[in-house]
Amino acid sequence: MATSGRTARPRVAVAKFASCDGCQLTILDLEEELLEIVTRFDIVEFPEATSRRSPGPYDIVFVEGSISAREHLDAIKELRKQARTLVTIGACATAGGIQAMRNWADHDAFRASVYEHPEWIESLATSTPISDHVKVDAELRGCPIDPGQLKELLTAVLVGRRPQIRDEAVCRECKRKGLVCMVVATGEACMGPVTTSGCDALCPTYGRGCFGCFGPRANANAKSWSTSLMKSGRPPDEVWRLFAGFTGYAEPFRSTITELGKVKS
């Protein structure tokens, strides 16, 4: 049970699509454990850390970033073929990321307003999560991912058990920490009730409402929460923006945004 019986270290690759590399940096941020990690895992591909390249197959592939450009479409399929286990990391890979806001907008107009030569930009009209294209075995949420959850996942792989990653509201972490609920006490907007935990309530700890970067938890009652936010006096477009952040393209945030879009216009 201690290990899966393999004598060789698992071959690990880190790959990226449309993303900011912040999740890859989180891997490097595991400073205490890095030495232990490279002893136990054979990290053969890691663009943020090394320019060394090594072809598959891989035991584990960590995928950062969303599918946002034409060449991504084939690349992710090829990567899947090379991966025994494929783990998506971060809001871009798991939900389409903040760049998925264009999924509700006019792609050409977006391109034209941002780039001087929009014709050079070969992006797709949508930014979509990896799971829309290939089978995903596990995911780590967040923008960026949480180092503790990453360590837990790696440990679970080595020990041979299921990672203990909870699917509960961010509120739960706030309450365990003894933070005062700002929704109730000050009227601050917060996505905590519908967002899955894992960040140790990072933003509320610093007096900010949750941005929802870990994405919707299972069965998130986004409809009631958006209604409640509007009931407390927020106009629909403000609520739209709350949901349409880092993980807006993940259901049920996605339908809530679409619904709010209707209210807005």
Partner: peptide, 11 residues
Amino acid sequence: ERCVECGNCTM
């Protein structure tokens, strides 16, 4: 339909 199941009541 209203409950967001945050569990705050129990906490």
